[in-house]
């Protein structure tokens, strides 16, 4: 079903709020020299993009578990392909 402008706005506000929290968490826990608001929603986390490494991944997984109570395991590596994918994973696990 296509959303009305109201529905689209309401949903986007909640989603953007969660994205902002995750961006802030990334910057804080991984001590990145990046303005969290400058991280794009579809920005890749590895390789191109934030250029995290596998050691950062473990830290990121722990941060997500501490903050959102959501675990990230080896079965969830698809969730680490972009910030949006990670937020999907958190949203999905909390729903």
């Amino acid at each position: 079903m296509v959303m009305t402008l109201d529905e689209a706005t309401r949903r986007a506000t909640a989603r953007q709020d969660l994205c902002s929290q995750v961006k802030q968490l990334l910057v804080d826990r991984l001590s990145l020299d990046v303005d969290p608001q400058a991280i794009g929603d579809d920005q890749p986390l590895f390789g191109r993009g934030l250029e995290l490494d596998s050691i950062d991944t473990l830290e990121l997984a722990m941060a997500v578990e501490d903050t959102f109570g959501v675990t990230v395991t080896d079965d969830d590596t698809q969730s680490l392909l972009s910030l949006n994918r990670l937020v999907d994973h958190i949203e999905g696990a909390r729903a």
């Binding site: 079903m1 296509v2 959303m3 402008l5 689209a8 706005t9 949903r11 986007a12 506000t13 989603r15 953007q16 994205c19 929603d41 579809d42 890749p44 392909l81 972009s82 949006n84 994918r85 937020v87 999907d88």
Partner: peptide
């Protein structure tokens, strides 16, 4: 900016086909 998010159900003008925003890639 107010509607930019992954998982939104929009529509193309004209044909009116539904498009859903997704999380890259």
């Amino acid at each position: 900016g107010g509607v930019a998010a992954s998982g939104q159900d929009f529509r193309l003008a004209g044909g009116g086909t539904a498009v859903r925003t997704i999380s890259a890639p």
